[in-house]
């Protein structure tokens, strides 16, 4: 490697490191501020980077004032039911679209594609009116409702089924499996990585979605972590150490899950997202 190569290498590392610092800095600042007193967080002269001592008081205050147990529970339940429903229904539909011939197939798949191109806000008012008419506002059901089925999931898993060899089904047929048995016993286990990817996407979208829970579950007890944060901010708008504590409480579970499953996350995105 010549001098130019070495210089380029240093430049590359510098760029990547600076970028990485910019990515991580807001989170560090969030964490640091959450342990500060208000005086520490607003002292500019001298500027306080680190809190004097680690203070859990902000966390205790936030937990006392807000029912975080309910927020965790609501968020978890919403994600769980959305993942179960969308994996089950999308896998079934995806297999049929990928491998079975039946009248109306192309038309119905057209509807799936169309749904993905339309901005989601266009569904929200009618969905709100439906849940309202059922008298189901402020429930877990309301949170799950728009995500019971998934056009995106159907499309994603269809790609996975299309990539599987046809011989498997022929062999299964010779062994006397009917279509349902072939799907459940042979094909479904082979799309495991696709199912994991869809599970990840579904959880992430549900976790980050703020507008729907804000609209449909207006009572404080039925909020998700995302919508609760919005409400907490309007309640204690200037007490930044407490706001940061609330933010840390809201994001740590997803970050932890990401750290554990990051390989699946990244693979899921790179194997599936890119082929859309």
């Amino acid at each position: 490697m010549g001098k130019v190569g070495k210089f380029a290498k240093v430049l590359a590392y510098t760029f990547l490191t600076v970028g990485a610092c910019l990515m991580i800095l807001p989170f560090l600042w969030m964490l640091l501020t959450s342990f500060k007193t208000v005086a520490e967080s607003t002292s500019m002269n001298p500027f306080v980077f680190f809190p004097n001592t680690v203070k859990w008081i902000n966390y205790l205050e936030v937990i006392e004032k807000n029912n975080f147990v309910a927020f965790y529970y609501n968020t978890f339940a919403m994600i769980l039911f959305r993942v179960i429903c969308s994996l089950l229904f999308s896998a079934m539909a995806a297999y049929a679209f990928a491998r079975l011939q039946f009248p109306g197939r192309n038309f119905l798949f057209g509807i799936v594609l169309f749904q993905m191109m339309v901005p989601t806000q266009i569904f929200i008012i009618p969905q709100y009116l439906m849940v309202d008419a059922l008298g189901m506002r402020n429930t877990i059901f309301a949170l799950v409702f728009p995500g019971i089925v998934s056009a995106f999931g159907t499309f994603l898993l269809r790609q996975f089924f299309l990539n599987l060899p046809k011989e498997l089904e022929e062999a299964a047929k010779l062994d006397g499996c009917n279509i349902g048995q072939t799907f459940v016993r042979i094909m479904l286990p082979l799309t495991r990585s696709g199912l994991i990817a869809l599970g990840i996407f579904t959880s992430l979208f549900a976790f980050k979605d703020m507008m729907w829970p804000l609209i449909i579950n207006t009572s404080t007890e039925s909020a998700t972590l995302s919508s609760a944060l919005a409400k907490i901010q309007s309640a204690i708008s200037v007490h930044y150490p407490e706001l940061m504590a609330a933010s840390v409480l809201a994001i740590w579970p997803m970050l932890l899950i990401f750290m554990v499953f990051q390989k699946q996350f990244v693979e899921g995105i790179s194997t599936s997202g890119g082929k859309l």
Partner: peptide, 14 residues
């Protein structure tokens, strides 16, 4: 990738 994992509400607050 980490910013992608955080709730927009928390991200905006910080």
């Amino acid at each position: 990738f980490i910013p992608m994992m955080a709730a927009p509400a928390a991200v905006t607050m910080v």
